[in-house]
Nucleic acid binder design. Structure first.
Lengths: 346, 346
DNA sequence: TTGTAAGCGTTATCAC
DNA sequence: GTGATAACGCTTACAA
């Protein structure tokens, strides 16, 4: 009953072969592999021996078709180029691997239209569950996932008001904390370099956090200069130059992530400015780069690995029938280094 | 014929539903989707309309089972935490996504036993083709892939003597070029911080490149101090401290990658040494960190995105029946920055 | 150009 | 505890 695959490959054994070799039915073989507890000691041994001898490995497509689960879990992330996502994804994958699941990856390039496409693509591919980044997406998509009973977890964000299972931190509160610190150093004229806030709720919430801090300190939130740009070092560089070229340049530039901040820092140094004496710069994420920049970056530490790991565990629980954990807020902590100092006098 | 999925989800339409709705057979529906050229204009229209109306999406498990291909391509990489692999993988994934394929990811943590496990796991999961990093692996694995007729491409390395389809650069020659440069600056006492060379052929070849350069310059390759360690900043830091603590400390420390080099640089600065006046340090990879380090790093630029992209194209060609491209060597170029200078006198 | 029907390799439902 | 056998949803000869 061996089958040569159509490309002319080597014959690959099937359950039928194992059944024949062990002198049992295919049903029994299947049982031995899936619920060993329910077969007799000796048939189990006989079958496993045959499995071993033939080098049998179940065909996953067939198994998926028959059991209606693929044991694959999808992740749709903006990009793997950002070290934060890459590491979170790595942790996520390790946890899945440990539990016999395989990771399916797609990227949205920070675009919600592409994200939607990928969500549909991965579910069509049979992903049993999904990891999503951030809350912002059309409600149709959430409905789609609910209807299809596909468990998902939103990571990189945490908002108790949202109905979705999620793991992350409060982007707004974290940034607020950092902005409080900045304002506490006497800075009154603030600027911000952010990613596009329209489609990126993490970016939006971070900007809101800055405004919260300004308001609380009696500053006019409307006075915050914002430049929205892509997440790239060169973009941060260019945005910084634009900001300091203004009539009343900021004394502190708060960046939406470390990549932008490093770009801003590079621009500042290139312009001959001293950091933090002439201008303070802050980042967000605490990627490795942050601690190793020419002037070590003040930033917010994000628990990327723990988010990835927790997300995996949550989905595995949901799939296993165990009640999945509640949404969980992980701490994002201030990471004070050298790029933030008191505002220059005057 | 709608089917409610077993978890109580919403009914999901099948070919039979579409066939019924369009008043054709299931075979015709399948043809409309897979080889639209072979059906009549009007049936095509009728069927697609039905597909659309019902929101039909083919079940991939069933399709995979019937057609013996999953349209999934696997990648087994040491880790996504290394920016170089993350970016190469991102490029690889983008190219696959563009061609309707999905990426399956597994990581080996730089361990060949785990890599073998993952290769078997991903092929068992039905990966149509595989991306592998480096040549070093048991020949049984290569035989396994050949026997199963599973196309694979070796990336991050290029050796014309090897029989495998590959895309990458000559690690040995690239490092030799860098070492030539180092020796050309008058350095005679060299040291090297490398990843484990036993299971990592890229690391091994890089060390060999250093030895080649030494030999060519009349230096004794055996005089090269080597510390093998893991790829981490702290590891580079510790290794550097060990090296400069020796009776005859090196004037140049050549590191196996940028992460190690940045760690070494950090240690040097922490020890109060001037770089490159007191000691030269070089890296490999040219990750973003390299150009932004406290002292910009002299390193070797690796074409990560192009490797990922090429690898994807090669596998797609192999799967499509098109003759896959030949193994291709991409240039890895010297990237001279500030951490390399003439050896201190004496 | 279209339809019929036989797989694809499992799992799962029944009887026994 | 085990064995027949019917799904699972699609692709693909082969016929018409």
């Amino acid at each position: 009953m061996d089958k040569t695959d159509k490309t002319g490959g080597v014959p690959v054994p099937t359950v039928a072969d194992v059944a024949a070799a062990a002198g049992v039915s295919t049903a029994t073989v299947s049982r031995c592999l899936n619920s060993p507890g329910v077969v007799s000691e000796k048939t189990l041994k006989k079958v496993l021996e045959a499995v071993d001898r033939l080098g049998y490995a179940p065909n996953f497509s067939a198994r998926a078709l028959a059991s209606n689960r693929t044991n694959m879990i999808g992740a749709i992330i903006p990009t793997m180029e950002n070290a934060i996502f890459a590491r979170g994804l790595q942790a996520f994958q390790e946890e899945l691997q440990k539990n016999g699941r395989t990771l399916l990856v797609a990227s949205s390039s920070y675009r919600s239209d592409l994200e939607e496409e990928q969500i549909r693509a991965l579910t069509a591919r049979g992903a049993d569950a999904l990891l999503l980044i951030g809350y912002h997406r059309d409600s149709r998509l959430y409905e789609f996932l609910e209807k299809r009973r596909i468990p998902y977890v939103v990571a990189w964000a945490y908002d108790p008001a949202k109905p979705h299972l999620s793991v992350g931190f409060n982007n707004r509160a974290a940034m607020r904390q950092l902005a409080d610190e900045v304002i506490g150093k006497g800075h009154r004229k603030l600027a911000c370099i952010s990613a596009d806030t329209a489609e990126n709720d993490r970016a939006r919430e971070r900007v809101n956090g800055i405004r919260d801090a300004m308001e609380a300190a009696g500053l006019d939130p409307a006075s915050l200069d914002i430049i929205e740009t892509s997440y790239a070092i060169d973009a941060g560089d260019a945005a910084f130059r634009a900001l300091v070229g203004a009539k009343t340049p900021p004394t502190a530039v708060i960046c939406g992530n470390d990549v932008l901040a490093v770009g801003a820092l590079r621009a500042a140094l290139a312009l001959g400015m001293n950091v933090p004496e002439d201008v303070s710069i802050t980042g967000f994420d605490n990627i490795e780069l942050a601690g190793l920049a020419p002037v070590p970056l003040t930033t917010v530490h994000v628990p990327h690995r723990r988010m990835g790991q927790f997300a995996a565990q949550a989905l595995l629980a949901a799939l296993g029938g165990t009640p999945p954990p509640h949404s969980t807020e992980l701490p994002a902590e201030l990471c004070l280094r050298a790029t933030l100092a008191r505002a220059p006098a005057g």
